[in-house]
Design a protein around this nucleic acid. Sequence first.
DNA 1: ATTCCCGACGTTTTT
DNA 2: CGTCGGGAAT
Length: 735
Amino acid sequence: MSNLLENLNPAQLEAVKTTEGPLLVIAGAGSGKTRVLTRRLAHIVVERKAEPYQILAVTFTNKAAGEMKERVSELLGGGVNSLNVSTFHSFCARFLRNESHLIGYDSNYTIFDAKDAQTVVKNCIKELGLSNTQFTPKAQMRKISECKNKLISSYDFAKSASGYFEDATAKIYSLYERRLKECDAMDFDDLIYNSVLLLKNHETLGAKYRNRFKYLMVDEYQDTNHVQYLLMQYLLGAHNNLCVVGDEDQSIYGWRGADIRNILDFEKDFPGAKIIKLEQNYRSTNVILDAASAVIDNNEARKGKKLWTDQQGGDKIQLLLVDTADEEAVEVVKTIYNKQVTTSLKDTAVLYRTNAQSRAFEEQLRRQSLPYQIVGGVSFYQRKEIKDIMAYLKLIVNTKDDVAFERTINYPKRGIGAKTVSDIALIARRETISMYEVIQKIDDYPEFGARAKRIKPFAVLIEKYRTEKKAMAIDLMTQDLVEDINLIEELRNEDKIIGQTKIENIEAFIEGVAEHVKKNVDAALETYLAEISLFTDLDAYKEIDDKVTLMTLHAAKGLEYDTVFLVGLEEGLFPLGQATMDPMALEEERRLFYVGAPRAKKRLFLSTATTRYRFGEVESIPSRFIKEVPSELVEKKDRRHNRRYGTGSHSNQPVQQSFFNRKPAMASSQPEGVHYEFEENEIMKVGRIVAHPTFGRGRIVKVDGMGESLRLEIMFSGIGLKKILAKYAKLKIVG
DNA sequence: ATTCCCGACGTTTTT
DNA sequence: CGTCGGGAAT
């Protein structure tokens, strides 16, 4: 197995061979980080320093964990199942399955996703009688999450809270915690938070795990937050064998509590730590690296590192200037289309700052019949129909899960209205039992009259599957359940067209369960649910298909493509909104650019539009990041119809443009500063034939309002009458 | 209980 | 254009 140490540059070799004591590996983009991590792990095993199960390696995504596991397994000649390579969240979830009884949780506790958690917060705000405009679930959830990431309990928070707003948040936080506990549920943050508390407060437990793991490794260390940092501290035994790999310049999760100090202070935290820098890049051309380096050089908070490559030169970076987001998509797709001959589609990616930007590209790619896939956005497991069926399964596993109860009790319809549900909730609170328990004993509560009859079958149904899940393969059980509740029928009735895709999703879900069963005979529903609760869309992504990939910059981390289009480089979009005002946030945006650019191996395209719709139509000015790229590395392509603005010039007079008046304006190449005040109705009048991106062709039958609030009623062939707000619908006039 | 219509909101990034 | 909540109609 001596080949473990072959084909490594000196720094990489050093990192692989340094197995003892604290080690920080600073790994620039494309510097062979994964190679080092996997070789190092395999090296420890081969040298018999530890058994595979005594090594713990943590990453952030399931995908990264899966890859690492696979590659280590290959290096070791396969068949090694006992490797502990997992994400922070899944490691903790498993840990808690074994140990959560110590904090009063059942081992079959439920994991609430972000949306479930927010629903609970919303209910708490309502229950406390607080104004839901002053206290939005989103903002409160964020504060709670922030606390948990810093290991601040609701109790601690309440103690230090001052003023009306903080007091209210404290109340929401503690009620939220109580509700979670009552549901036997944890949110994402709890998984790590509770694990840390357990290790901290139960000395014997801590000792057990510290004894067990002889080597710890953390990938993407720059993205760890405080609790994650603590988790590693509590797992780290006296041997001090902690290896962290990261790159402070790639820290892009500050908004999720990632604490860049973890990596910056590593030497302070672990005296005598060895530091190895991997600075040779094996991925991108010199041009691309120079551009990325030049931009990141504008940041203050960094250790300083210089990436280099021996691939000299390379294609210049193409800067594309266009008028609108739509034309940006047209130009990008045109370029992809022409490049197909030289670059296969699977080696091409379009990266953007926000998911909302994907639409225009999707539309154009579809128009050109170029296959594409979107990574991220609405994940499969977040779709309504999937969450619905999962809610049934969750309730079957954990009847205390009131969120699942409320989701399933009247879907598909059983004639149980809001009133009955809130009555059930009230009694559940009063008796401190779960909502499900209330309906099980419904006859005991005189509050329910004849209505109770309608609820009973639901309890019978759930009980049936609680028994069935013990005796039956879970894929067959799920299939049964779907038939039992008539879900397919229900979906078909809701909407003919949309229903069909939902039905397909349900079928795909069942297929997924079946696959899981194939891999794990006797698979338990409990563990399967736990697993998929931590899945993301990213994890399913494979680069096998020959498709163009569309995703956010965040999602692109760790991936690489021959050709990359970095789009929407405009002030306010990238860097995004508030970040332009806040220096720290701006640095994070800059790091995001630094993460994104070297995703390109050979060719990098940047693009900017001069107008873009974001909350009304606003004029965009080019991103400062464009100016930070040395101009000799850039080739400019101006595809604007109306070149009123230079690349860097600012127009202090925003041009009021709506979708409708823009078209004629462009055609007639107007001089600067002209306002195009068309009477929209001139164009959008009854009888006109228009094309809608999703509904197809249709005829305008009614026009209402004007300007921003112009409303149209359009009769679409095959679909029917639709009411549409013209401001948003991307309509084209056809006749 | 359910359905439908209106207005008000909203967009970062994700385990 | 989505989702959500409120309120009225059925």
